[in-house]
């Protein structure tokens, strides 16, 4: 049953991803992209990564869709003459190459949930976190302990990335929005 669910979900995500890439009408693409986000969030939940799933739900499906809608509302939108994008040859070649590499390497991956995968079994990183995170931080959610504790500097960097996105938008749009009150 687990694999049947996984296959159905995968089919849905694949369909949404293809539709996002191929549809021509921007409004339709945004809506389809939101559906893709739904599928991805389900996938993360299915793989038991609830933190990632929640982020995908909050950012991918919620905020991104709204910001994209707002952007096409404030810009001129042309009526597409065609419904389906015609893929161009160089892009297809690059895509095909990447696909071959990905499929070729995915077969080399450790099995899903394997206890021998280095990512899990490495006694000095992952296992160390699992053993020590509660002792070190008194935080129950090991993900939070890693994010804010062991790899807190990455979190700092990511927070700065978000901040930088805001600043860049201000610079691009030429807004000193905040000096006029």
């Amino acid at each position: 049953m687990v694999s049947a669910f996984g296959i159905a979900l995968f089919g849905f995500v694949l369909a949404t991803a293809l539709a996002t890439a191929l549809l021509r009408d921007i409004l339709a693409v945004i809506i389809v992209f939101a559906a893709y986000s739904l599928g991805m969030a389900l996938f993360y939940a299915f793989l038991l990564a609830p933190d990632v799933a929640m982020t995908e739900a909050a950012i991918g499906a919620g905020v991104t869709t709204l910001l994209l809608l707002l952007t096409i509302a404030t810009t001129v939108r042309e009526e597409p003459g065609i419904a389906i994008e015609r893929p161009n040859l160089p892009a297809l070649v690059v895509f095909g190459g990447l696909l071959v590499v990905m499929i070729g390497t995915v077969t080399q991956f450790p099995a899903l949930g394997s206890r021998n995968a280095p990512v899990w079994s490495n006694p000095e990183v992952t296992q160390y976190y699992l053993e020590h995170s509660y002792k070190d931080t008194k935080v129950h959610n090991a993900v939070t302990a890693v994010l804010a504790g062991y790899r807190g500097f990455d979190t700092f960097g990511e927070a700065v990335v978000v901040f930088a996105a805001g600043i860049s938008t201000l610079v691009v749009l030429g807004r000193e929005v905040f000096t006029r009150e």
């Binding site: 990511e158 700065v160 996105a165 600043i167 860049s168």
Partner: peptide
């Protein structure tokens, strides 16, 4: 992470 910071600010 720092590639991202550099990239995002450079685009802007």
């Amino acid at each position: 992470v720092f590639l991202e910071i550099v990239g995002l600010t450079t685009y802007g």
